[in-house]
Simulated scan of single mutants.
Amino acid sequence: MGTNNVVFLELIEWMDDTGQDIARRFPQEGSGEIKFGAQLIVRESQRGVFFYNGKAVHVFDPGRHTLKTANIPILNKIMGIPWGLTSPLRAEAYIVSTRIFPNLRWGTREPVAFKDTEFGLIRLRAYGVFNIQVVQPLLFINSLVGTMPSFGVTDVADYLGRVIVSRFNDFMGEELKTILELPGRYDEWSEGLTQRLRQDFARFGLALDQLFINAVTPPPEVQKAMDDRTKLGMFGDMNRYMQLKAAAALEKAAQNQGSAGESMGMGIGFMMPSLMAQCMGAALQQPQGVPQAPSSSPALSCPECHAPIRPEDRFCPACGHQLVVFTQCAHCGKNLTPGARFCPRCGEKVETQPPQSQRCGHCGGENLPDARFCNHCGERLQS
């Protein structure tokens, strides 16, 4: 793009070679003098946002678009004489990638405190992966990108990972009593945690496509205690244990040479049908788990009437609600118009500053503003 030329118009397009950038500003250095008639090329996996004189003007869908500003070639240099041949009519264009960014990692940097009914206060480590997608480009730029020349997944993954860990801690405190119940619940927890986090991500114009919990690991001493309990459970049915030991002894004796081994082998032949029948009967009595098909990620819905919408829709086809979000109410999530001081839905005053983090009254640890359990001591936070 020629930003320093006098006559030629700009051609604005973006091809991300790294695959790690979410948004890119044009021009890259400072503000620009995008001329009248400049061409903006937006591809299928992108959205374009045009700013003029510091204000967002329009969100562009995929295609070729002509930008109309007051910066006319040659004349803009004459008009900019009092400002050092720089036009005061500033314009910038942002191109935002709307593809899904997969395999972003989240995990606990420090062990998270959890009050277990069986083992007392223990510290757990957890980690997994999640996928994000930009669904509100304008809200994403206003809330996260700001005036940065480029914005990548590494700029936001660390903060979102902290949010996931905090919500995961709250989820454990409400859904789990002891880690002995943890195996086999990863899929159920992943779905529940995804539903809880979608509102947190929506405040930044992002959608949480999927979230997976790979592992939740207790400290070594707790793992040893769990192994001991597992061994006791294995030997709970002494009849089966004695049958297995007897079968192993008979098989070993049958391998010995001589008349005794032959006689023992004949005895095994008579006893094997009985042992097999008992083992098969015990296996049939055990309930078999039925695998469940993984649930697909729910489609986008209107925040007002919850009707299904498409990513490219600007208004809800059911209720007409405006889907292009400038900012949202921190209390009820209502879309707010630029300059609004009070929310039209709940009447709360619009917060201009982000909410402050809250400290635990027991250990003084710092947590997210609306966390329910402390990440440091596991105690419930006072609301």
Rank of each mutant, 00 (worst) to 15 (best):
P317K: 07
D200C: 06
A225T: 10
Q28D: 12
R185E: 07
L40W: 02
M272A: 14
F119H: 01
L138M: 12
M276G: 00
L244N: 07
R25L: 07
I309F: 06
V57M: 11
L206D: 01
Q356K: 15
S150A: 12
I100R: 14
I78P: 01
R90D: 08
L182T: 02
R123L: 04
P287A: 13
Q255P: 04
F270W: 08
F140I: 05
F235A: 14
I309E: 07
K349I: 09
F36I: 04
C279Q: 15
C319P: 01
Q288I: 12
G281E: 15
R125P: 03
G289T: 14
E29S: 10
D313L: 07
E348L: 01
A340F: 04
G84N: 09
S383T: 11
L124T: 00
D370Q: 10
M238S: 11
P317L: 08
C316R: 06
R341L: 15
N335R: 15
E118D: 13
R198M: 09
D200P: 01
F270V: 14
M242D: 13
P102L: 04
G289Y: 13
L193S: 09
K224R: 14
P27I: 07
A126I: 02
A113H: 02
R310Q: 12
L67R: 09
T66W: 10
F151Q: 00
I100D: 12
M234V: 15
E251Q: 15
R198G: 04
V145G: 03
Y241P: 00
D370K: 03
C329E: 00
Y241V: 12
V222H: 01
E181H: 12
G365R: 12
E221N: 04
W14E: 02
H376D: 10
E110N: 13
Q136H: 15
F8N: 10
E188D: 14
G269V: 05
R24F: 10
G32H: 04
L67K: 07
H331S: 11
F50E: 02
P88L: 04
P294S: 06
K35S: 08
R240E: 13
G281R: 15
G161D: 06
H331G: 05
L75R: 06
F373W: 13
P149F: 05
L250Y: 12
N367P: 04
S166C: 01
A249R: 15
G19I: 06
Q195D: 15
L89F: 14
Q243N: 07
V6K: 04
A318H: 11
R125L: 07
L89P: 00
A318T: 10
A93H: 01
F60A: 01
K77Q: 06
Q257C: 06
K68L: 14
